[in-house]
């Protein structure tokens, strides 16, 4: 695939030379993705300031209302303000996305680095395990892991993280393997630099491109999976506002007030869309051949 091929020139240099930046600036997908994602992140960060109401405060008299001047997006089955819950929900969803991808990147990246750098039996073992994990549909794997760990937002992060480990292991491995062959790296290795030094000074910075792209795309996937797990009741616990969990608990009310189902869904779609656009823009910039 395009993301995994590495050009023979140093990515790192291209990055600083500005070619990538120039391409990014001209890429409408990257720009739109960044703007929308920026707005989402800001509104999540400033949720306490922006929210008109306490997101967990119930008002049973005002249950299941449609949008109005007091409640711009209406209220849920407990009379809680949907706008406030959507804003706070963004914090949870983004946090889950970032932390689970960070987990996948750290552990998958390390495994891929070891496999690609040292090769041999270590490589075989790591790749065999990742083959096995990849043989299971990712969502099913995450579901089984959450079932084992128990429901809860932390466990969802771990499960989604683990199910993403093999992807990162593979990408990092192939990036490392191609960088390894480059002259300046072989030179460093031949000159007797310590392994750790070679990895961190030369290999990691030079394989950063495809990794950034994969991080962005995995973020989108992670947010979707986490919402899906919460939707099945395995994720965020009440009264925590989380988009998937909001959909889960609102399900039975959709015939009376479809707002309770509509808004959290739109929030997920917009966030994932922004991340996908951003990721696609980044991919174009790092690897101009595709598209």
């Amino acid at each position: 695939m395009a993301t995994t091929t590495i050009e023979k020139q140093s990515r790192f240099q291209a990055f600083w030379n500005g070619k990538t930046f120039v391409r990014l600036r001209r890429n409408p997908r990257f720009i739109w993705g960044t703007i929308v994602l920026g707005i989402i992140i800001l509104s999540a960060v400033f949720a306490p300031q922006l929210s008109p109401y306490d997101p967990v405060r119930q008002n049973l008299v005002e249950r299941l209302q449609g949008p109005s001047a007091e409640h711009l997006l209406g209220t849920d089955q407990f009379g809680r303000d949907l706008l406030s819950r959507i804003l706070y929900g963004g914090r949870v969803s983004l946090q889950v996305g970032f932390l689970s991808v960070a987990l996948a990147l750290a552990s998958g990246g390390l495994l891929g680095l070891l496999a690609g750098y040292f090769g041999g039996w270590l490589d075989s073992v790591i790749m065999a395990v990742s083959d096995v994990l990849l043989a299971l549909p990712a969502f099913l794997l995450a579901l089984a892991i959450v079932a084992a760990l128990g429901p809860g937002i932390t466990n969802v992060m771990i499960a989604v993280g683990i199910s993403n480990v093999p992807i990162f292991a593979r990408i990092v491995r192939s990036a490392v393997m191609s960088v390894r062959e480059m002259d300046f790296v072989s030179a460093a290795m031949a000159a007797g630099s310590r392994h750790g030094r070679v990895m961190f000074r030369h290999i990691i910075p030079n394989s950063i491109g495809p990794i950034i792209v994969q991080v962005t795309l995995s973020l989108a996937g992670a947010i979707l999976s986490a919402a899906g797990l919460s939707f099945l009741g395995m994720g965020a616990q009440p009264p925590t506002p989380e988009w998937g969990a909001m959909l889960n608990s609102a399900q039975q009310f959709y015939r009376v007030s479809h707002w309770v189902v509509t808004w959290p869904g739109i929030a997920i779609v917009v966030t994932v869309l922004a991340l996908n656009l951003l990721g696609d823009g980044l991919r174009d910039a790092f690897d101009p051949r595709s598209d």
């Binding site: 405060r57 049973l60 407990f78 429901p151 009440p238 399900q251």
Partner: peptide, 15 residues
């Protein structure tokens, strides 16, 4: 447990 009615009861009692 993850029974939707029970979860709602829990949330109201909590509040």
């Amino acid at each position: 447990n993850d029974n939707p009615l029970r979860i709602q009861i829990a949330e109201i009692v909590q509040a």
